[in-house]
Amino acid sequence: MARILIIEDTIENMYLTTYLLTNAGHEIIQATTGEEGVEKALSEHPDIILMDILLPGIDGYEATMRIREAETDKPIPVVALTSYAMVGDREKALSLGCTGYIEKPIDPETFVKKIEEFLKSEE
């Protein structure tokens, strides 16, 4: 059982991700903007954060950097959800402090498994 912060602006995707992870028995915290995500990350101390990159306001990279700058305890793992479109995204995400990287669109059959692997490697 883990507490997972999902930062995602699209309702359908938020629902899908939340559905899949809740169905797998995890506790979900939701944020729809980068600012809100940073705020909740620092206040709620989730076990892992799923970070959409293209967000209204500050983007996922910026949000990740702010979390990294502000947090005092052990860093919270951040998994970036990026498009396949941009070749540099993966490298950029990792260099800015993201722990992992999942391409969108997600595969509902393997998604939960991947997240749980990140959680396991963090323990």
């Binding site: 699209t10 359908e12 995707n13 629902y15 899908l16 559905y19 899949l20 293209l54 498009s83 396949y84 479109a85 941009m86 969108k104 669109p105 997600i106 595969d107 509902p108 059959e109």
Partner: peptide
């Protein structure tokens, strides 16, 4: 434009493929 289009097209596809997968599962 490409990045935006990619995102914009993929976002609905994400839910189409995702939910179809969920239902099929």
């Amino acid at each position: 434009f490409i990045a935006t289009m990619s995102h914009e097209l993929r976002t609905p596809l994400n839910s189409i493929i995702g939910f179809t997968g969920v239902v099929l599962q």
